[in-house]
Amino acid sequence: MSEISAEQVAHLANLARIALTDEEIQHLTTELGQIMQAVEKVSEVATPDVPPTSHPIPLRNVMRDDVVGDTVLTTEQALAGAPEHDDTRFVVSAILGEEQ
């Protein structure tokens, strides 16, 4: 399963929105193969009878009251870190894809 092709890495880079260079893809293809070979070891003990753990400390029903909090930002604060804005909204260049 650890056979990873350059095409797969290119696909993953696309999913992860990183414009990797061909050189990076080649390099990562080799490295990823090695790393996956090492981590695949988990399947040796991950048998069907073992339940998964997604939270180290099991809590449940953590909820807040439906009340406006004190962390609301001003528009100035919201936009302060933006690469580009028009004083009310964030500006992005043209969108190619459609929303999901």
Binding site: A78, D86, T88, F90, V91, V92, A94, I95
Partner: peptide, 9 residues
């Protein structure tokens, strides 16, 4: 055909 887009969160 839009040139750019504005985002309101």
């Amino acid at each position: 055909g839009a040139e750019y887009s504005l985002v309101d969160y």
